Amino acid sequence: MGSNPVHPVPLGFVFRSRAKEEKAPTAVKASLTDSKQPRDPQAPKGRPTPKRSEAQTQRRSVANTTMTRKDASKRQRDERRAQMERQRQALAGGDERYLPARDKGPVRKFARDFIDSRFNVAEFFLPLAVVILVLSVVRVAALQNIALLLWLVVIVLILLDSVLSVFRLRKRLAERFPGQNQKGAVVYALMRSLQMRRLRLPKPQVKRGERP
């Protein structure tokens, strides 16, 4: 019976196989050791732990961010104060850019100028009311009757003057701003006419008798 021939195994192959077997456990042990190392809490997942200098830089950036928020809050307060100051100056000088929303726009400006360019009976109501009140307090029948009559006259004059102002203002607005939104402009003008000229805000920009 024939026997299978035995081929000699090269010595180099044997040594290489043993070297691979020895390196494999070492690599596994190294991977396990690396996975057990504590990960820096600031390092993103799946990334190596940053160096000490990088970690210090990140901590400084976080601190700067916190300070920036405080500075931003302070800056917002300063901006609000500056805005209110600009608005106050605009009410005194008539700068349209910084006026409150209720006073902005060409329609509202025209309504203000219309009222400021004429005498309004309603603006004299407070001084007349003081005079009438004094007369009514005096215990003289004639003066009290005069005070009552003055009350009636003032109220009638204010009503007539207000109706005339509304009629003229609506006509002028229709001519000057056709097709534009004029909502609230007439009421806005009437409320202004109730105030004394020197107390009006924004301050009057036209003289009495001047055509707006």
Rank of each mutant, 00 (worst) to 15 (best):
A63H: 08
A63W: 05
M84A: 15
L32H: 12
M84K: 15
S53F: 06
P41C: 00
K51Y: 05
N64S: 13
S53H: 09
S73P: 00
V28C: 05
R81A: 13
E54Y: 06
R60V: 09
P50W: 04
R75P: 00
D78R: 15
R77L: 08
A27N: 12
L91P: 01
K45W: 01
S61M: 12
M67E: 13
D78L: 12
Q76N: 08
P41D: 02
R75T: 12
A90P: 03
Q76D: 10
P50V: 04
T57S: 14
Q58P: 03
D71T: 06
A27P: 04
R47F: 03
Q83T: 09
S73L: 13
M67W: 06
S73A: 15
G93E: 11
P41R: 02
A90C: 03
K74V: 09
T49Y: 00
Q76P: 00
Q58L: 11
R52K: 12
K51I: 05
A63T: 09
A90M: 01
A27T: 09
P38C: 00
L32A: 14
T65H: 14
A30E: 10
P38M: 02
V62A: 12
K70E: 15
A82C: 04
R39Q: 04
R77E: 10
R86L: 08
E54R: 12
M67G: 14
A30M: 07
T26S: 10
L32S: 10
R60F: 07
T66R: 11
T65F: 13
R69E: 12
K70G: 15
P44Y: 05
T33M: 06
S61A: 14
A90T: 02
T26Q: 14
G46V: 02
Q76E: 11
G93K: 10
K45S: 02
V62L: 13
K51Q: 08
V28Y: 08
L91Q: 03
G93R: 10
A90K: 01
G46D: 04
P48R: 10
R39T: 02
